[in-house]
């Protein structure tokens, strides 16, 4: 009886700890302010059926900028290689904002377009 009770308590404790941990890592929180800094990242874009890469990169940013709220691009999106584009976001984004932006950019948000952040985002002074 006591062993069974201990097992139930242990199982409940493990389940509670798992749920708490899951909530901790998935919960969204506000980031600190990074005024005067920018975040730059390199986005690699793959498209299908002749979808222009630069248009796809613009479309991905347009669809995902809501995840970092009022931030804007410090400079226009510039192509830095074959299918690679650099985005400079101001003000800089924190840990949670980075997770939201990368999740949107790398998710299958736009049909026929696949994005992957291959570098960054890194914070630097504006």
């Amino acid at each position: 009886m006591a062993v069974r009770f201990l097992r139930v308590v242990l199982a409940a404790g493990l389940l509670g700890a798992g749920l708490y941990g899951l909530a901790e890592v998935t919960q969204n929180r506000p980031d600190p302010s990074y005024a005067g800094q920018v975040s730059e990242l390199t986005l690699r874009v793959r498209t299908k059926e002749g979808y222009a890469h630069d248009v796809a990169a613009q479309g991905l940013w347009a669809q995902c900028r809501h995840t970092v709220r009022s931030r804007t691009l410090a400079s226009p999106i510039t192509q830095v290689g074959a299918g690679r584009f650099q985005l400079v976001v101001q003000p800089a984004i924190g840990t949670h904002g980075t997770r939201r932006l990368l999740g949107c950019l790398e998710d299958a948000t736009t049909p026929g377009v696949s994005g992957q952040v291959v570098d960054g985002p890194r914070r630097r002074p504006a």
Binding site: T26, R99, L102, G103
Partner: peptide, 12 residues
């Protein structure tokens, strides 16, 4: 499912 939720990749 939980990995994608953690990464904010809702479609996946």
């Amino acid at each position: 499912l939980f990995v994608y939720l953690y990464r904010w990749e809702w479609n996946r």
